[in-house]
Write a protein that binds this DNA or RNA. Structure first.
Length: 233
DNA sequence: GCGACAG
DNA sequence: ATCTTGTCGC
């Protein structure tokens, strides 16, 4: 019987079936906090991302931390690891969190917020990657995906800052956010210790110029460096 | 039953 | 996610 990845510490096992993973999601979901801490004003913001070699089961993960005031990087950690869970829509966290966990453990600073490259609350069981990671690490988090997953939404305005609600099963689970005019919008949802308005506000602050939040851009650049540097060596 | 389906 | 160059546009 697999461990349920009980936070905040203890042995965590990732060898499990999709059915078992679903049970883990439903169990951990009860720990999800849907409001940010009182007076939440993050300074250290982390971005997490994973890169996978095509047709391989090897992944390169990275977490990069920036100071929101200066937008400058203040810490970073990377890790290469075998991905022991397949990509199954709805269970992305079980594939990406193991290598990201190693990055998290290696960080020298404790971020006030983590932005994940994937959905959070906008998930079939309301427990996407950002929710799972946030609960495991007990840190406020945001899900910021490049593509839609669940729900429907009205057309998004063309101007930067325009948004549209993502509705699923009669509930607003996230928002489509235009971070840059002329670019595809982002799909934002709350993770742990977070709410939708705060998540949208932070994503726009983190992406003043480019489509993706600065945290995601840096993490993405880092994992690709790790992947390219590893082949041939 | 059929199609859809984060990275 | 990854395979991939140049090219159109602000």
């Amino acid at each position: 019987m697999p461990d349920t990845n009980t936070p905040p510490s203890g042995p965590r096992r990732w060898e499990m079936t999709v059915a078992e993973a679903r049970t883990v999601q439903q169990t951990l979901r009860e720990r999800l906090v849907v409001q940010p801490p009182p007076g939440f004003s993050p300074r250290l913001v982390a971005g997490a991302d994973v890169s996978v070699e095509r047709f391989k089961h090897y992944g390169y993960a990275a977490i990069v931390v920036i100071d929101l005031q200066t937008m400058e990087q203040v810490d970073e950690a990377g890790a290469a690891a075998e991905l022991r869970f397949p990509y199954v829509p709805g269970y992305l966290s079980f594939r990406e969190l193991p290598p990201l966990q190693r990055c998290w453990d290696a960080l020298r600073v404790r971020p006030d917020l983590v932005v994940f490259d994937g959905h959070g609350y906008a998930h079939p069981r309301r427990f996407g990657l950002a929710c799972h990671g946030g609960v495991l690490w007990d840190v406020p988090s945001i899900g910021c995906a490049k593509n839609p997953f669940i729900g429907t939404h009205a057309p998004v305005g063309e101007a930067r800052g325009a948004t549209a609600q993502i509705v699923h099963e009669g509930e607003t689970v996230g928002k489509v956010v235009r971070t840059r005019a002329g670019a595809k919008p982002l799909y934002v949802s709350a993770g742990h210790r977070m709410d939708l308005p705060t998540a949208v506000d932070l994503v726009l602050r983190l992406a003043p110029r480019y489509r993706q939040p600065e945290t995601t851009r840096l993490a993405h650049r880092r994992v690709n460096e790790l992947r390219r540097a590893d082949r041939g060596g």
